[in-house]
Simulated scan of single mutants.
Amino acid sequence: MNTLSLPERVPHTALEDIIALLFGTLVVSFGASLLKQAGALTGGMAGLAFLIHYATGVKFGVAFFLLNLPFYWLAFRRMGKAFVVKTFCAILMVSVFTELHPRFIDISHLNPFYAAIFASVIMGLGFLVLFRHKASLGGVNILALYLQDRYQWRAGKIMMAVDVCIMLASLAVVSLPILAASICGGVVLNLIIAMNHRPNRYLA
């Protein structure tokens, strides 16, 4: 009896990983730059970094990089050295690129709802690139990916639950219209991840 054989798994090369990290972080950081200009925010560690930025004036890139430092140990213990190295590089590049984008592009008017939704779409695409090359943007992403690999829990749903808490906390620093726009963007971002990043869907 003949059975269909599964296609051979072909891992990414080191060059492909480097290019993916560059492209993925450029896309995510551009989305974060749009959110920052609109005064909106998102979930995860980026959301916490936005809260700190709006409340204290600390640069988003600095806050984002520092907030992720405690999570590298968990990543090393549970996800491996290669994952930690890729994630550290991804976080560093997003932190730097987010601060550099305004030097090259200046948008005079940006509707918060448009910014939140459009930024979330392109950030979701960037996240998928990073996830599929065994990298993340730290913090909640590391925890979500670990739980997905260990218990088959959907990373998108885990991130969505955490994001709800961050959005509620943001009431202290943003207006209700901005919060509404940010929530819409957060839903879009997590839907993209939940629909496209599932266990065993992508094996390279």
Rank of each mutant, 00 (worst) to 15 (best):
residue 49 A to N: 11
residue 179 L to H: 05
residue 94 V to F: 02
residue 184 C to H: 06
residue 93 M to P: 09
residue 199 P to H: 01
residue 165 C to M: 14
residue 196 N to P: 12
residue 32 A to C: 15
residue 39 G to N: 09
residue 160 M to R: 06
residue 22 L to K: 00
residue 86 K to A: 06
residue 129 V to M: 04
residue 181 A to T: 10
residue 198 R to W: 00
residue 66 L to R: 01
residue 8 E to R: 07
residue 166 I to V: 15
residue 162 V to W: 05
residue 36 K to V: 13
residue 29 S to C: 10
residue 129 V to Q: 01
residue 127 F to S: 02
residue 46 A to S: 15
residue 152 Q to S: 14
residue 144 A to Y: 03
residue 92 L to V: 12
residue 128 L to M: 06
residue 95 S to W: 04
residue 70 P to I: 03
residue 78 R to N: 05
residue 151 Y to A: 13
residue 11 P to S: 04
residue 124 G to D: 05
residue 35 L to A: 10
residue 7 P to Q: 03
residue 152 Q to T: 14
residue 133 H to F: 02
residue 123 M to W: 01
residue 121 V to Q: 04
residue 22 L to V: 14
residue 105 I to V: 15
residue 135 A to W: 00
residue 57 G to K: 04
residue 46 A to R: 01
residue 78 R to A: 02
residue 81 K to F: 03
residue 43 G to T: 06
residue 109 H to S: 12
residue 196 N to L: 05
residue 12 H to L: 11
residue 194 A to C: 04
residue 133 H to Y: 04
residue 56 T to P: 14
residue 26 L to R: 02
residue 135 A to S: 14
residue 137 L to C: 07
residue 182 S to E: 12
residue 38 A to P: 14
residue 203 L to M: 08
residue 31 G to A: 06
residue 52 I to P: 14
residue 163 D to T: 06
residue 66 L to F: 07
residue 146 Y to M: 10
residue 129 V to K: 01
residue 9 R to S: 09
residue 123 M to S: 11
residue 168 L to A: 15
residue 166 I to A: 07
residue 152 Q to D: 13
residue 163 D to V: 06
residue 179 L to D: 12
residue 108 S to P: 12
residue 138 G to R: 00
residue 11 P to H: 01
residue 153 W to I: 13
residue 49 A to Y: 03
residue 169 A to K: 03
residue 128 L to I: 03
residue 56 T to R: 02
residue 12 H to F: 05
residue 171 L to W: 05
residue 128 L to K: 00
residue 27 V to W: 00
residue 189 L to H: 09
residue 171 L to V: 07
residue 161 A to S: 13
residue 120 S to Y: 01
residue 101 H to S: 10
residue 139 G to C: 08
residue 72 Y to P: 15
residue 185 G to A: 08
residue 191 L to E: 14
residue 146 Y to S: 06
residue 48 L to P: 07
residue 172 A to P: 10
residue 105 I to D: 07
residue 202 Y to W: 06
residue 159 M to I: 15
residue 44 G to N: 08
residue 188 V to C: 10
residue 19 I to T: 14
residue 151 Y to N: 13
residue 23 F to S: 12
residue 176 L to T: 15
residue 95 S to C: 10
residue 14 A to C: 03
residue 67 L to T: 09
residue 161 A to I: 13
residue 172 A to M: 09
residue 14 A to R: 05
residue 192 I to M: 05
residue 169 A to Y: 03
residue 179 L to Q: 08
residue 113 F to W: 10
